[in-house]
């Protein structure tokens, strides 16, 4: 549905997007992830034809966004960041206008508007002036705008930015639902959003694509690097039992909830391939030392960890070959 090839956007003073390539297949819900200022909005604006790329190509639904711009744009429902709207118009008027601009046939506009309003759950505000709507409703009007011409592809720039937790949950549920019938690319800097709504994520940082894959694949990029055990008994005894084991680099104990319970966190030493055997040995040692083990398991890397890892300032080494060539 979207094919991006070697996209670069150079603003002269800053390079906002460098050599980014990715694909979004039909029916996918893809999260476009990155810290603030990573180039997400710039990339999306290029995808929808609002900005021109310095180099590289974008094809949307088989149409080049520059050479065949109108056809490509007809396939897209775009919601810009913070959903700017004409505040003097009523919701129904606005969506009617948007349907007309998006070439929805005259006779079908009314139904298209009603459909979009019910999908985005704004029907009860249909006759309210947009300027009087709350942020949450405006966001949903923006979503209805993206939906009004029933495009196969939705590109949503930070659809949940500035909403309260309840609204965020609603919008996410909405997006999940839409994902069944649309291809969706949504940008966010919040990881849980991607986990909650997307099949796949594309991670971008300082204009570069740093990772791409399913949520599970991204998590797997950072394998479990330790274990967590809950034990009952003496703290020092527990540490003494676990610390000498091979593969354990460091042990930390914190009081856990409950009488005499401790939570032991094991960090693996470098070169230890798997946390499993270490945990087994740790349980045996703890039981042997007369402590009771309540539970044990690998400490799973959250997507947050992966994200932090991926977008941490990397050594500039990987930039040098480019400069040298």
């Amino acid at each position: 549905m979207i094919e991006v090839d070697r996209l670069t956007k150079d603003y002269g003073t800053v390079v906002a997007v460098r050599d980014v390539s990715f694909r979004v297949g039909k029916g996918e819900v893809v999260g476009f992830l990155g810290p603030n200022g990573a180039g997400k909005s710039t990339t999306m604006r290029i995808l929808v034809g609002f900005l021109g790329a310095t180099s590289g190509t974008v094809r949307v639904a088989g149409h080049d966004i520059v050479d065949d711009s109108l056809e490509a744009r007809r396939a897209i429902g775009y919601m810009p960041e913070s959903a700017p709207l004409y505040t003097e118009m009523r919701v129904r008027e606005y969506l009617g206008f948007r349907a007309a601009v998006k070439k929805v046939a005259r006779g079908e506009r009314k139904t298209a508007v009603e459909r979009a309003m019910s999908l985005a759950v704004v029907t009860e505000m249909a006759d309210t002036v947009i300027g009087h709507l709350s942020k949450g409703y405006r966001q949903r009007v923006g979503l209805a705008d993206a939906l009004v011409a029933n495009p196969p592809l939705l590109i949503l720039d930070e659809p949940t930015a500035g909403l309260d937790p309840n609204q965020i949950r609603e919008v996410r549920r909405l997006i999940r639902g839409l994902g069944e019938s649309h291809t969706i690319l949504l940008s966010t800097h919040i990881l849980s959003e991607v986990e909650a709504t997307c099949d796949r994520a594309i991670v971008i940082d300082r204009g570069r694509l740093v990772a791409e894959g399913t949520i599970a694949e991204l998590r797997a990029r950072r394998r479990a690097d330790g274990g967590v055990l809950t034990v009952r008994g003496d703290r020092d005894q527990a540490i003494a039992a676990v610390e000498p084991l091979t593969g354990v680099r460091r042990v930390r104990a914190k009081p856990a909830e409950g009488e005499g319970l401790w939570r032991l966190t094991l960090a693996l030493s470098k070169g230890t391939p798997d946390v499993g055997p270490v945990l087994e040995a740790a349980i045996a040692a703890l039981v042997g030392a007369g402590l009771a083990v309540r539970d044990a398991g690998p400490s799973r890397a959250t997507l947050e960890d992966v994200f932090a890892e991926l977008t941490r300032a990397e050594p500039e080494a990987d930039e040098e070959p480019e400069g040298a060539s």
Partner: peptide, 14 residues
């Protein structure tokens, strides 16, 4: 100024 131009220019109009 208000940013609505973005929605306008990404609609299929020349």
């Amino acid at each position: 100024k208000s940013g609505t131009i973005e929605a306008l220019l990404t609609a299929p109009v020349t």
